[in-house]
Design a protein around this nucleic acid. Sequence first.
DNA 1: GCAGTGATTGTTAGG
DNA 2: CCTAACAATCACTGC
Length: 100
Amino acid sequence: MPKEATTKRGKTGKVEKRKGKKDPNAPKRGLSAYMFFANEQRENVREENPGISFGQVGKILGERWKALNDKQRGPYEAKAATDKKRYEDEKAAYQVGLST
DNA sequence: GCAGTGATTGTTAGG
DNA sequence: CCTAACAATCACTGC
């Protein structure tokens, strides 16, 4: 079941910006393909839709994201994977400080 | 060995 | 300052 549409926020509806800190270094994870995709589309989308609020851009961005083909998401996923590696570094260092 | 869980990431916009 | 839809993620953890 926990395989719904990935649109599951917490419980009350909060997803990001959690203040509760549980890890000492909190290695945070890497970004996601959408983050990189948005980084480029944000300029393009907002250009085609000047004056629109986030509600529009946000949704449009999401639609365009999937509108791309798997190969188009490739470069984005690639960045996501690269960023993930970046996180791996923190995680590694973060673990080192834990395993003592 | 398996399962799901939570935490996080970035955009824009406005009160 | 923060949240909200939009999407992916995916490493970590517990028995």
